[in-house]
């Protein structure tokens, strides 16, 4: 692997697997995530892309932004297509039709393609135990079709199908907790990640590739177009989401919970919501309600981490298996 000598990109593959010239919006967080993820995996991969922004802006025939083998089939079935790809490689290698080699089969899909329409296919693929990595690029609404709400849209957010009005505060429901649902599938590895934390992201992607069996990665993909936020704030918003506890960075490695970024006291929610137009209509009491629930959820997560840490200490005495690296108290970003 060809590396740079400078300090931040040191851990990244210098090769670009997602070419410039793609048609993503200005400041697209999903694209930053894709670039980093591909660099973390490297060239030995096959990517299955669900219908959505990333599929559309990357593959206008006869052009492609991809430097890796890539397939798109439909909206709701990337997990099933990836199942087929994985099973094919396994069989063809076993039968000697292809040389044996480590190829990462990865599916990427948006939050609608994951939490809503593709939920069944995802659950099936995880349950069957295919050796694949499923990545949800969560921009919290159907951005490709024009910012309609999904079950992953956060409470209170304005979308084109959850507009605030005389009788409405925007999205009425709480964001579906996909990482926890995946953890409940008892798959080897589940993690939340954000391209605002490239070191954490790269480490988790590599871990997901390395574990035997299915891994689920849930990425917060900031969307300036849909969130009504300044394009330059994309990366900062990712940090604010983590620091405010709205999008906790954690991983569940073989059932063991680790919070990778626990700021101790969560950052005030208004820091995060304030720079997004989609929350502009919310009143102070709405923010209070959201903040309470975010806090409670974070506390629940801490509880899980403590509980599994106890189990882990017992276990480690027996097996000697090290736990994933834990970042303790992270300094709050100054910006």
């Amino acid at each position: 692997m060809e590396n740079f000598n400078v300090f931040v990109p040191r851990l990244l593959d210098a090769r670009e697997y997602f070419s410039a010239g793609h048609r993503a919006c200005q400041g697209c967080g999903e694209t930053v995530a894709i670039r980093q993820i591909l660099k973390a995996v490297g060239r030995n991969m096959i990517l299955v892309n669900a219908t959505g922004c990333s599929e559309i802006f990357s593959s206008p025939f006869p052009q492609t932004a991809w430097h890796i083998p890539w397939i798109h089939v439909a909206f709701e079935n990337s997990a099933a297509v990836a199942s087929g790809v994985e099973a094919a490689l396994k069989t063809l290698e076993r039968k000697g039709r292809l040389p044996k080699r480590e190829i990462c089969v990865m599916a990427i899909a948006g939050d609608g393609a994951t939490a809503d329409i593709g939920f069944q296919a995802l659950s099936g693929a995880m349950e069957r135990g295919h050796n694949m990595v499923y990545v949800c690029l969560d921009n919290e609404a159907y951005m490709n079709t024009g910012i309609q709400r999904s079950s992953s849209t956060p409470f209170g957010a304005m979308t084109t199908t959850s507009p605030p009005g005389r009788l409405s505060k925007g999205q009425k429901t709480w964001k579906k907790n996909l990482p926890e649902i995946m953890a409940a599938h008892d798959i080897p590895y589940v993690a939340t990640l954000s391209p605002s934390y490239p070191f954490d992201l790269v480490r988790k992607v590599k871990r997901a590739v390395e574990v035997e069996g299915p891994a689920y990665l849930h990425v917060l993909a900031v969307c300036p177009t849909g969130w009504r936020s300044p394009t330059a704030e994309t990366i900062r918003l990712g940090r604010l989401a983590a620091e405010s506890g709205v999008f906790p960075l954690y991983e569940v490695d073989h059932g063991r919970y680790t919070i990778n970024l626990d700021p101790g006291e969560l950052r005030p929610l208004k820091d995060y919501l304030g720079i997004q137009g989609r929350f502009r209509h919310l009143k102070p009491e709405d923010l209070e309600y959201i903040e309470e629930r975010v806090q409670a959820n974070f506390e629940k997560l801490r509880g899980k981490a403590r509980m599994t840490a106890r189990e882990d200490r017992k276990d480690r005495k027996k097996t000697g298996r090290p736990r994933p690296r834990q970042v303790k108290k992270a300094a709050r970003s100054k910006k």
Partner: peptide, 10 residues
């Protein structure tokens, strides 16, 4: 969907 994936993989 799975056979589309497997066929595409050869």
């Amino acid at each position: 969907s799975a056979v589309v994936g497997s066929s595409a993989a050869g």
